[in-house]
Nucleic acid binder design. Sequence first.
DNA 1: CTGGGGAAGGGGCCC
DNA 2: CGGGCCCCTTCCCCA
Length: 539
Amino acid sequence: MPNENNLLRKIMFRASWGACGRGKRKAAGLRGELRRRKLLGCACNRAALPLSLFGMEISSHQSHLLEQLNEQRKQDLFCDCNILVEGQVFKAHRNVLFASSGYFKMLLSQSSKDTSQPTTASFEVFSPETFVVILDFVYSGKLSLTGQNVIEVMSAASYLQMTDILNVCKTFIKSSLDINEKEKDHYFTLSAKSLNSGSDRPSFYRSRRKAKSNPRRSHIIPDEKAGMDNENSWSNYNSCPSPQMNIQQPEGPITKRIQKLGSMKRRRKHLRLNQGFVQYKSNKPEQSSGSYGALESNHISQHREEIYLNTENEEAGPDYQCERESEVIPKRWSVAQVEQELSRTSPELMDLKADELYTSMPTILGVMGGWNEDLPRMRFMCPFCTHTVKRRADLKRHLRCHTGERPYPCEACGKRFTRLEHLRSHFQTIHRAGKLICRKCKQHVTDLTGRVVQQGTRRYRLCNECLAEAGMDNIPNDDTDSEHPLLISIRNKNSRWPLEEEHRSDVEILKDESDKLVNQQVNNDSADEAEEKVKSNIR
DNA sequence: CTGGGGAAGGGGCCC
DNA sequence: CGGGCCCCTTCCCCA
C-alpha cells in the first residue's frame, strides 16, 4: 500500500500543475497505473480533469476516526455526556451523539451552552441492553440485530430518531416476513411446528454514513416477488447504497416476532415514560387518552402496524419525537407512501376518514420549544408531516389534508371540501353570487344597480352598465327563490347538507346538473362510488 | 411568458 | 371540542 499511496500523492502533485498538458498526461498515465492496480474506482475513471482528484476520499479515514472515538469512549476519554438507562450509566461524546441521533441533536442543541459540564440524559423507555446495541452502532457502524432484539432496537431507534437503524430494522423485519411467507408457501400452513426455534445469530449491519447518499434510495425494499428467494432479496439489500449492509440472514419465525411485537407493545404500554434531563426538568404530562393497545386486534391497527413497519419515511428528520405511553411510531409518513401502502395492503382503508384515523392512531404529543421555560409548550404533532398544532381538534382537522377526506360536497357542482366553511364560502361566491361586486368592472353592485347572471353552475353579478354593454340587460333576473324538488330530496337524504337557507335560489343551477347531482350524493355506499370518492378526494 | 385576480386550501385562534 | 372567523399562501385561469 505505501507504493500506492505514493502513487496517489504523485497524482495529486501532477494535478497541481493545472493546465499544464505535460502534467495532465503524466497524471493520466499514473491514473492508468492506478486503474491497473484497481485503486481507482469509476469516479476517478471519469475524472478527465486532474482538479477533480482533489475530491478523492481516503476511505479508511472515516472508519479510523470512528475507531478512535470508540476507543476513547471505552477508555472514558473526553466523554462529555452521561446517558442513564434504567440506572446504568453510559458515557459518550456529545458530538457523536449529536451527529447520530435526531433526539440528541434536538436535545443538545437546546441544552446549556456551558460545555464544561457533562450533559446527563436518562431513559427508561428502553433497556440498557438495547442501548448498548445502539451505542455500539453509533461508534462502529455495526448493528447487532437479532430476532429477539430487533423490535426493541427499532423502538429505541425511533425514539432516538435514528433513521439508519430504523430502516435496517425494517428491512430485517421485512425480510423475516418474506422468509415466513416463503415458509408458508412451502408448507401450506403457518403452524408452530414449521417455525424453528434455533438460537438467534446476531446479524451485522454496517451503515455507511455518508451525507451524499440519497436517503430515499436506501429505503428501497426489494420487490416481494424478487424476494421469494431470500438470499437474493438480501443481496438486493446489499446493493442499496445506504445503509450498506453485510447481512446474515435474519432468522426466527415471524409469528414469534409478531408475538413479541405484541408483548413489546403491552410491555411498553406499562413502561413509565420518564424522560428527564437534569438540566431541563420537563413537566411533560403523561398521555392517558385512548388506548392504542386495545386496538391491537383491530383490523385497521394491524394494517397500521404494517404501515408503521413499511412506510416510515426515511427522511424523518430529527425535528420531533412522537410517542404515546412510550409507544413509538414513525415521525413522518409521506402521504404518497401511506396511500401506496394503504392501497397495497388494504384497499378498503383508502376510505379511511380522518376521524377514524384520529381515534385509532397513537396520540402524537411532544414538547416543542420552551425548554428554557418553566412550562414547555405542548404541541400535537402530525405523524405525516412536521406540522404541530396546539389543540387536538386542530390536528384532527389537519389530518384531513393527509387523508384526502372531503366530507363536504357542493351539491351544485360536485366539488368537495375539507371544511364546511370552505364549502359555504365556495357556494356563496360561486353559486350564489354572494359577492356584491360586478364581475366585469369590479364596482359595488346591489340588486338595484345590477343583477345575478348565471354561467353554467356559476353565478355572478354584473352592474346594469356592464349588462347593457354585454347586451344582457333584457335577460330576466336569475335570482329566484324557488326550490328545485331534486334539491329538496337530496337535502333530505343528506343530513349533512350545510346550506339550509343559503342556496334556496339555485333552481336553475340544478336544471343542467340534475343528473350529475344524483350521482354526487354523499352517502352512496356502492363500491364504485367509494372508489370514485377516494379518487376524487385525493388530490 | 408574465402578472393580476379569483378561488381554494390551510393554520391560528376565539367563542 | 366543534363551529366559525380571519388571515395568509398557493394554485389556476385569463388577459
